[in-house]
Structures are given as structure tokens and as C-alpha cells.
Computed example of a mutant assay.
Amino acid sequence: MTIAFYGIRNCDTVKKARAWLDEQGIAYDFHDFKAEGVDPARLMHWIEQVGWETLLNRRGTTFRKLPDSDKQGIDADKAAALMTAQPSMIKRPVIEHPGGILVGFAADRYAATFC
């Protein structure tokens, strides 16, 4: 099984998730959305599957530096526009696998999904 792994190469959480997958011998195709961008249709699919609240990283520096006007009144469309314009605002990693989508890294969730 090969999974699709989306993230930012230098992100510590992405590094932990990749190391975990490597240790388990799980193959993945890596897409660095900071370098390569994020497909708006794929982003909308993720939003439909897990919700924009799960995907939007409000704790990150990129989001915190936004003007207050951009942080107010966020809905799915506004969140998608923000994440498309600045992929650093997407919580990382996002993993597409045959059973669904995982957002973030937690070894126990990964083990329950892949092992």
C-alpha cells in the first residue's frame, strides 16, 4: 500500500511522521505543499472529509501574523482561500490512505490505521 503524504519538508511534525512510517516500512509519496503548492480541489476534498477547523493551523506563526480582519468570520471558503494562498497554514501532515484522511501526527492513530 502506498499512501499520499502532504506536508512541509522542514516541519518537525512531518519529520516525526515520516520517520514513523519509514520505521514501519510503509511506502508513501511525499508532496511538499510549501514548495509545490496545494491543489484547491484536493484542499476542498480534505475540508469536506475532515472539516476546515481540523485543517486550519491556527497555532502556527503564519496564521498568528495575519491581520485581525483575516482571522474574523472564517468559514470553509475563507479558510480554503487562506490555506491555498499560504499552505503553511495547513495543519501537517495530511495523509490520504485507502481508509480516509489523517491530519497531524499521533503514533497511536497511525498504528491503529496502518498496523
Rank of each mutant, 00 (worst) to 15 (best):
I26F: 12
H45M: 12
A35H: 10
P98R: 07
V50N: 03
F30G: 12
D77M: 07
T54V: 02
G104K: 08
A106T: 13
A41Q: 10
F105L: 03
K71S: 02
E23F: 14
I90V: 08
A112V: 06
L82T: 07
A41P: 12
A80N: 01
R42P: 03
N10M: 14
V94K: 00
T113E: 10
T84E: 02
A81F: 03
D32V: 03
G7I: 14
Y6E: 15
D12N: 12
A80C: 02
R59M: 05
Y6R: 10
E23C: 11
W46Y: 01
R18N: 07
R92C: 01
A19R: 15
A27S: 15
G37W: 11
G7L: 04
G99Q: 12
T62H: 05
G100T: 00
D22H: 12
E96I: 03
L102S: 04
I3T: 11
L21Q: 14
D68Q: 08
T54A: 02
G60S: 03
D68S: 11
I8F: 14
D12E: 15
G99F: 10
A106F: 08
I95A: 02
T54M: 05
D68W: 10
T54H: 06
I8C: 13
A27Q: 13
Q72Y: 09
F30W: 04
A4N: 13
A17F: 09
F5K: 10
S88W: 04
T54S: 09
A35E: 13
A106K: 14
D70C: 05
T113Q: 06
I95T: 07
P67V: 00
K16T: 11
E36C: 08
P93L: 02
M44L: 13
R58V: 13
E48C: 03
A111W: 07
Q24A: 15
G99D: 08
P98C: 09
A35N: 14
L43F: 07
G51I: 00
T61A: 08
M89R: 09
Y6I: 05
T61F: 10
T84V: 01
K65P: 09
R18K: 15
F5M: 09
A106S: 14
P93C: 00
R18Y: 06
R18C: 02
I90W: 03
A76T: 01
P98Y: 08
D75W: 00
A85P: 11
F114R: 00
V14Y: 05
S69G: 05
D39H: 07
G104L: 05
D12I: 05
P98D: 09
E23D: 15
T61H: 08
E96D: 15
K91V: 02
A81D: 04
A80V: 02
W46C: 00
A81I: 00
V103D: 06
G51N: 01
I90E: 06
R109T: 03
A112H: 07
A111R: 15
D29C: 07
A19M: 12
G51H: 00
D32Q: 11
V103K: 09
Q49H: 06
I3L: 14
C115I: 11
V103Q: 10
K91I: 05
S88G: 10
K15T: 06
A19T: 12
K91D: 04
R9V: 01
L102G: 06
P40S: 04
V94S: 00
A85T: 04
W52K: 08
A106H: 13
G73Q: 14
K78Q: 05
I47Q: 01
L66R: 04
L82V: 00
A80K: 02
